[in-house]
Amino acid sequence: MSLSFLEGLRFARVDSPLHRADPRAKFAMALSFFASSLIFTNALALLALFALQIPIALMGRIARRWARSLRGGAFLAILIFLMNFLTGQGASFSIAMSLRFFCLLSSFSIFFLTTSPDDLGLALEQCKIPYAISFTFTTAVRLVPTMAMDAQEIIDAQRSRGLELERGKLLRRVRNYIPILVPLIVCAIRRSLEMAEALESRAFGASERRTSLIALRMGAGDFAIVALSIALLASSIYISRSFQMPSLEALDSLLSFKWGFAQPAALGRIPKA
């Protein structure tokens, strides 16, 4: 068991146009992809949405890590597919749901890979969110990799003591996680207490109004990103309402074995939404 996919959500310190863009603009973009993927239930539309993110990942020079986070999510995607398919949702719908998961994961991955925790904190602060809250948020983001390392170490230690996570029936499997979760939580609490002490000894919260050395300013490129994001969302809404999309329903028939392979026309058929 490996938690390496969390690497795919961790800020990658490289230089790219996307890294230099305003965090608020990138957030708008992530949100737009996020919402769009929730609008569609059509596999082809979701595939297109996903494909749109590939050049973005390339532009941000994070394609490899992005791909790794997707690979890490593959297991969940398969689970989503199976859960839908086995409950009788049909193959095309089940594929669409898996694709939707990839779209959501991808939009977050791109955002977090290209936005440093510092930028994120700055963005929150300049949106007039109290420092205590924005600090909490950025600290949480910063701690994710540390906690992932803790978790890996804990899993290793318990496996060395004969714990087999994949053994037993469902209830037993859930219980198998107790020896992992308890130390993880204890470590997190201990760390946060230590951090609180360190913060207080450095006069955290002494001044009500903090000023910042770096002020975020939206440039032309940033406005372009926001505009494109809005356009994406708007067209997603428009397309999903006004067009019937060709679907992969052929797959449904194929996989349900009702009609076998005898329905090639199904590909071009316009289905009910």
């Binding site: 230690a157 060395s160 003591r161 004969g162 308890v182 130390p183 470590c187």
Partner: peptide, 22 residues
């Protein structure tokens, strides 16, 4: 061999006890 099988003859004690006590 699985980790559990190997662990029967190889006992590995980790550095940080806090990452295993529960």
């Amino acid at each position: 061999a699985s980790v559990a099988e190997l662990a029967r003859s190889v006992g590995l004690v980790f550095q940080n006890p806090d990452r295993q006590l529960f």
